[in-house]
Amino acid sequence: MSDSNSLIFSLEAGIATIRLNRPDVFNSINKPLALALQERLRACKEDATVRAVLLTGTGKAFCAGQDLAEITDPSSPGVSEIVEQHYNPIVQLIRDLDKPVVAAVNGVAAGAGANIALACDLVVAKESASFIQAFSKIGLIPDSGGTYFLPRLIGMQRATALMMTGDKVSASEAERMGMIYKAIPDENFDNEVVALVVKLAAMPTKGLAYTKQLLNASFHNGLEQQLRCEADYQYRAGHTADYREGVSAFMEKRKPTFTGE
């Protein structure tokens, strides 16, 4: 099914696939696409049948960031309003979604497109794909959580250099520096992406959600506070049906069947 021409959504076997679908402009984001993406992320959070989310693009690009044709239109709101109304909610929804979100970067990811990908829980990319912090090339600053996530992923020096120079980073180089989880040969990309999201969807998703919440908290907690949080969430995890199923399956030497409860 499709929300609009700019976004394609499907749900099968617990996997929600969201495809940015403006290939003629490299999936650059305008208001309709931004709002459709927000709507779908909210729906994925509320739908108990969704166990994992896959975000990708159609055509040759993942996402080229903001559609400059929109932002230069005299009737368009200012840059800061677009960031606050379009991009900040998308990033927050991804981080608050209590299910694993995988970004499958099928081509160039530039500007906000790169940073939306980096906000996801796991990022895999075609070897032919690339990442560009393109903001400096038009006199803007990195948004969509870029100044938050990128230095934490690759360190302050590298993040500063990439943001100031706007240099292109290949998928293989992004993997080497820890920016993404894995660069995948183009010919294997689709199969490996499917295998990854199928694996995640079959796992104890309540525990994965708790892990994600702890990782979010670790960005601002000290060690003592984080240890307390781990104890609290371990208590919660230990009272889930998935924990009981996991232990039973291990003792009975069989494959577990997790339900996300």
Rank of each mutant, 00 (worst) to 15 (best):
G238W: 00
L97W: 02
E230V: 15
I82G: 02
T56Q: 05
L208V: 04
S172C: 13
M251A: 04
T257N: 10
G65K: 03
A117R: 00
H239D: 14
T205E: 07
N30M: 08
P142S: 09
Q157H: 09
D96F: 02
V102T: 06
L93V: 02
Y148K: 09
E84T: 07
F219M: 11
A134P: 03
L122N: 10
T49Q: 08
G207R: 09
V247T: 08
G207E: 13
N106K: 12
F26R: 10
P204L: 01
I29T: 06
D242L: 02
E39K: 15
E84W: 00
I82S: 02
K126N: 03
V83L: 08
R22S: 05
K60V: 13
L7F: 02
R42W: 06
D186N: 10
T72G: 03
K168S: 14
S172N: 04
Y233K: 15
P89H: 04
N5A: 09
Y235H: 12
L122Q: 15
E81D: 09
L200H: 00
L68P: 03
G145S: 07
I154D: 01
G146V: 05
N188I: 04
G139W: 00
Q157G: 05
N221Y: 00
N5F: 05
M1N: 14
L162S: 06
A171E: 00
L97N: 10
L150M: 15
L54G: 11
K126W: 00
M203P: 02
R244E: 06
V105A: 11
M177S: 06
S28A: 15
G145N: 06
D190Q: 09
L33Y: 00
A112K: 14
G59T: 15
V101N: 11
A69L: 09
E261K: 13
L162I: 07
E230A: 07
V198Q: 10
M156K: 09
V79A: 10
R22N: 04
A48G: 14
T56A: 09
A195K: 15
H239G: 14
K212Q: 15
A114V: 01
E224P: 03
V197L: 11
L55R: 11
Y235F: 15
S2R: 12
V91Q: 09
Q226I: 03
Y87W: 13
S128E: 06
S172Q: 10
P185E: 04
D242C: 01
L41I: 13
H239W: 08
Q133C: 07
P151D: 07
A16I: 06
H86L: 04
I82F: 00
E175T: 15
Y87I: 08
S248G: 05
T17Y: 01
S76Q: 12
S6T: 11
T259E: 14
F131P: 04
I180F: 01
L55A: 07
E39I: 05
A13V: 07
M163W: 04
Q213A: 13
R228P: 00
C44A: 12
I90D: 00
F9C: 12
A249I: 03
T58Y: 07
R244D: 06
A237S: 08
Q213W: 01
G59M: 07
E224C: 04
M203G: 13
F131Y: 13
E252D: 09
A104F: 05
A52E: 04
A237K: 04
K126A: 08
